[in-house]
Simulated scan of single mutants.
Amino acid sequence: MLRRPASAPLVWDLPTRLGHWLLVLLVTGSLVTGQLAGSWIEWHGYSGLGIIWLLSFRLAWGVLGSTYARFLQFFPSPARLRLFFRGQWYGLGHSPLAALSVLALLAVLLVQAGAGLFSADDTGFAGPLRALASAAWAERLSGWHRLSANAVYGVIALHVAAIAWYRYRGKSLTAAMIDGYAREGDGESACGGGVSVFLLACALASMLTYAASGLWIVPEPVVATPAW
């Protein structure tokens, strides 16, 4: 880990850092349990709901959170991308290229987790919202869920490659995501995103996850077949 300057600004707040590492754990667990299948498939569903909670929280935090966690602050506009590729972009937080990677990862995981809610396969697993989809749509979404796993692997590979490249260039992205402080660059520390905003983002994420869990769906009554 590169040494942090005494005057380094705080870039990544605690919720952003915790959410990042929890997402790493849950995505890893989801990919592994999906491959193992069998008795592990139930845990695959649990990790999927956990991912939905984290994605929902990140979307809310990207609007309500602290300075460098907000999407508007790091959105990779064409102008910012041009400056970056010309070597003229300077700033704290995500670079325009890193921002593209972050948004791509969020989009792929949203498709992957969202499709999994309605999917069903021959292992006996059925997503929590399977009852809301027709058989044709369930089959289609199951296919999307399987195919998008390849996109998840691809985005993760690009993310790891970017981290390795920056490390090779003498920069540590991982260190900043551990303690929150930038290793280089000048600017103001992150502000905003207090406790009340954090609790609001948690509440919004919890409501969306409850909706995704299907616990609110009333099962259809089972009609007994007459014995005669």
Rank of each mutant, 00 (worst) to 15 (best):
A164I: 10
L106W: 03
A161C: 10
D121R: 13
Q73I: 08
F125C: 11
L132I: 13
E184F: 12
L92R: 05
L147G: 05
S77P: 07
V155C: 08
T174S: 09
L147C: 08
H94D: 14
W144F: 14
G124N: 09
A176I: 04
R146Y: 00
N150D: 15
A115C: 08
A120L: 15
G185E: 10
G124R: 03
R169V: 13
E184G: 10
V102L: 15
L173Q: 15
A126K: 07
A161L: 12
L106C: 09
R86D: 13
E139M: 01
G116K: 01
G192L: 09
R140F: 15
Y153F: 09
A99M: 03
L83F: 12
A138T: 07
H94V: 14
W165S: 04
F85S: 14
A136E: 02
A104S: 09
A190S: 07
G170W: 14
A138N: 01
D186G: 14
A149W: 09
G87W: 04
A157H: 05
V160C: 12
K171Q: 12
L100E: 11
A79I: 10
V102D: 00
E188W: 01
E139P: 02
V108G: 00
V111L: 08
D186W: 10
G124H: 10
F118D: 00
G124Y: 07
W89L: 11
G127R: 04
K171Y: 09
R80M: 02
Y153C: 12
G114A: 00
T123S: 15
L117V: 03
L147D: 01
V155D: 04
A190Y: 01
S172I: 08
D122H: 03
G116Q: 02
A161Q: 06
P76D: 01
W137Y: 03
E184C: 09
S148F: 04
H159Q: 14
A164N: 08
G114D: 05
S172A: 09
G124P: 06
S148M: 08
L158P: 08
P76A: 12
A161G: 11
F84R: 00
L100S: 07
V152S: 04
P96G: 06
F118R: 02
Y181L: 11
Y166N: 06
F84L: 12
I156F: 07
G93K: 01
G114I: 00
A176D: 05
A176V: 02
G93A: 12
S77Q: 04
F118M: 07
A135E: 15
A135L: 13
L103S: 06
E184L: 14
L129Y: 09
L110C: 09
S77N: 07
D186M: 13
S172P: 11
M177P: 15
G116F: 07
P128W: 06
R140K: 01
L83N: 02
L105Q: 00
A136L: 08
D179T: 06
